[in-house]
């Protein structure tokens, strides 16, 4: 038994993924997207809420 399974041909990890140059760029875009959502929701919280209590 080995730690890693047969990792197969590496070709799927290379090349463009749609408009992204590589998987790493796609993953980075998801991370940036999450940060943007967090910021947008925080801005929602501080600008849209005008509670009186």
């Amino acid at each position: 038994m080995t730690h890693s399974p047969d990792l197969g041909p590496p070709d799927e990890d290379e090349g463009r993924i749609g408009i992204f140059a590589s998987w790493n760029w796609l993953y980075a875009s998801v991370v940036i997207y999450t940060i943007i959502m967090l910021v947008v929701l925080y801005v929602f919280t501080v600008t849209l809420d005008h509670g009186i209590g």
Partner: peptide, 12 residues
């Protein structure tokens, strides 16, 4: 605006 009075948009 009405939702904001009771802080219903508070997401974070």
């Amino acid at each position: 605006y009405i939702g904001g009075i009771q802080e219903m948009w508070s997401s974070v």
